[in-house]
């Protein structure tokens, strides 16, 4: 499933378009950035409530397919300023990480049927 299809399926608010055609391989939820870098896989949709500038660096270096800011968190100005240097898309949702992950699982499983 492509990033854009995932975003549509979850009715995500797009904060930065990035590469909407990238394939989403899985999902990772986490806010401790080193933990995310250690455990997230390339191509994951990364769900987090962290909203500072380091999110951009971690997203780029961990090579995730997209970032989803959960629970409606507001990215700080420094993070917004970094969006344009990202390859990946950034979205926001009012849903909590659990619900997002649950729905993403459903969408990705549905792809295989």
């Amino acid at each position: 499933m492509k990033v854009n299809e995932l975003a549509e399926g979850l009715s995500l608010e797009c904060l930065y378009e990035g590469d909407g055609e990238r394939e989403v391989e899985g999902c990772y939820c986490g806010d401790l950035l080193s933990w995310v870098m250690g455990r997230a896989s390339a191509g994951d949709a990364w769900v987090t409530i962290m909203s500072n500038v380091n999110v951009a660096a971690v997203a780029a270096l961990a090579d995730v397919a997209c970032v989803i800011l959960a629970e409606g968190v507001e990215p700080d100005e420094a993070l917004r300023g970094r969006f344009e240097r990202l390859d990946c898309a950034v979205f926001r949702s009012g849903m909590a990480a659990y619900e997002l992950a649950w729905r993403i699982h459903g969408l990705l499983e549905g792809r295989q049927e």
């Binding site: 401790l32 950035l33 080193s34 933990w35 250690g38 500072n52 380091n54 971690v58």
Partner: peptide, 8 residues
């Protein structure tokens, strides 16, 4: 800031 998890 999201660091200091002891994973570095």
């Amino acid at each position: 800031l999201g660091f200091g998890a002891g994973m570095g």
